[in-house]
């Protein structure tokens, strides 16, 4: 395992990886915030219509958003582990 900040090249690579992972978290948060606003907007319209109408199915925040969060965290953990431990196949 090469030390992460031992050489200028490794230090640069470590910085790039950390920045990419932080950026990934920011994109996740912005995406979820924007998604929540769309949901709120649709939900408000649905509530206004629903009082006398037929019950309808609308998308829920649940599964997709959680899948997005879990898979992003998984990818960040995976790439960090590969970068830190640097597995060698041969």
């Amino acid at each position: 395992m090469t030390a992460l900040f031992a050489t200028p090249g490794m230090a640069l690579a470590s910085t790039v990886v950390i920045v990419l992972e932080l950026l990934s978290v920011v994109i996740l948060c912005v995406g979820l915030l924007s998604y929540r606003i769309i949901l709120q907007s649709h939900h408000g319209f649905h509530i206004s219509l629903h009082h006398a109408g037929k019950r309808a199915r609308w998308g829920s925040f649940g599964l997709l958003a959680w899948l997005y969060i879990v898979s992003t965290v998984f990818l960040i953990a995976l790439t960090s582990m590969i970068f830190v431990w640097q597995p060698r196949f041969f």
Partner: peptide
């Protein structure tokens, strides 16, 4: 190795976020 790693990670994150943004938007 470092170049390939950074290229791979960038492609992985870009693809991942693009796909989930697409899914979240299209589901609505």
């Amino acid at each position: 190795a470092l170049f390939l790693f950074i290229l791979g990670v960038t492609l992985l994150f870009v693809t991942h976020h693009w796909f989930f943004w697409f899914l979240l938007a299209e589901s609505q």
